[in-house]
């Protein structure tokens, strides 16, 4: 597999702000790649560096090995689904989808037929005559997708593609995007601040923080073995164990992360660690129980969250309980 997109020490500064700060990154051909991070972390700027709407201040962006330094956006084999969809309001859906072919000088009949084919692909057959304003948010999203795919781009960029949709529709679109990507075999790069979306769709995830990549890896790697405190905090809702507490849990001399679902509540007698229940939050699929272990350790505030599955027994607030955990789930990490 060759590299579809390659960042070689790329920085993008806006005045004094380093939006992207010395990022190196390789996205393989055919990969479904997610750029995850809070707003202002540089993930959208990275996407715009690929599409060509931003130029790197220093460094080189390569697409299929070619240096894109002198290639304007309209000459790249890359297309974008914009966050606000950016459908042309004065054109009907069919003309919107066919725009990319019109630009290339494809004759009207061929391009309208092709537009219909793509509309069918995104399950919008028969919507060709409508104006974008007459569509729902989810439908507009599909039109934007069809429009971006008509030129058969080699890399498709998606900027917060599902951000404006409601939960139900978002989940349906997640499955559909994933399926579409598998069928077409195109490299998908998408930007999101929703860790659930990134983990469920992407083959690999890059977690961005303050213009830098905190960690790149498969969804399971990122989730189970966060490299830094930031990743552990941002992806999921890990327990961050201070070095003292980490030692108690079996990791010496470092900060460690421990996922709530890797912990179990057991009777206090004979348990290696005990604590008092301080709160319980019902989440539907389970209950998140917080347990204060500090009074037993005599250290600074140390609360541990435990995910009790729906079938499990939830102890009452104030109860003294013991904790058990999978030893290999305690994962040492850097402090950053």
């Amino acid at each position: 597999m060759s590299a579809a997109v390659q960042f070689d020490h790329v920085s993008r500064h806006f005045g004094g702000v380093k939006a992207v700060d010395d990022v190196s990154l390789t996205i393989a051909e055919g990969e479904f790649f997610a750029m995850l991070g809070p707003s202002g972390s540089g993930k959208t700027t990275c996407l715009r560096l690929i599409s060509g709407f931003e130029k790197p201040t220093t460094g080189v962006v390569r697409i299929f090995g070619e240096d894109m330094g002198a290639v304007p956006p309209n000459q790249r084999q890359v297309n974008t689904v914009f966050q606000d969809y950016a459908l042309f309001p004065h054109m009907n859906v069919r003309d919107n989808v066919g725009y990319g072919l019109m630009v290339r000088g494809v004759d009207r009949r061929t391009r309208l037929a092709e537009a219909e084919r793509l509309l069918a692909l995104v399950h919008l057959d028969g919507f060709g005559d409508r104006k974008p304003a007459q569509l729902s948010g989810g439908q507009r999203q599909r039109v934007a997708l069809a429009r971006a795919l008509i030129n058969k781009p080699r890399v498709l960029l998606l900027d917060e593609p599902l951000g404006a949709l409601d939960l139900k529709l978002r989940e349906a679109m997640q499955d559909e995007l994933k399926k579409l990507q598998r069928e077409l075999g195109i490299t998908f790069v998408f930007v999101t601040h929703d860790q659930g979306e990134a983990l469920s769709m992407a083959d690999r995830v890059a977690v961005f923080s303050q213009g830098k990549i905190a960690q790149v890896g498969s969804a399971t790697e990122i989730y189970a073995r966060p490299a830094t405190r930031f990743v552990a905090d941002f992806v999921g809702s890990s327990n961050i164990l201070a070095p003292d507490l980490a030692r108690t849990f079996g990791v010496a001399g470092a900060l460690a992360s421990l996922r709530p679902e890797a912990l179990r509540i057991i009777p206090a007698e004979g348990a290696r660690i005990t604590g008092r229940v301080t709160g319980a939050r019902y989440l539907g699929a389970g209950t998140r129980v917080t347990i204060a272990v500090n009074e037993y350790l005599g250290k600074e505030e140390a609360e541990i969250a435990v995910l009790v599955p729906a079938a499990g027994k939830v102890p009452g607030i104030g109860a003294v309980v013991g904790l058990d955990w999978d030893a290999d789930a305690v994962h040492p990490m850097e402090a950053a």
Binding site: S51, G52, F53, P72, P73, N74, Q75, V78, N79, T80, F82, Q83, D84, A86, L87, F88, Y99, G100, V103, R104, R147, A148, I150, N151
Partner: peptide, 15 residues
């Protein structure tokens, strides 16, 4: 006219 519309046009290959 939103900036993203001009960008969409350019992304689709238009000069």
């Amino acid at each position: 006219v939103p900036q993203s519309m001009l960008e969409a046009s350019a992304a689709l290959g238009a000069g």
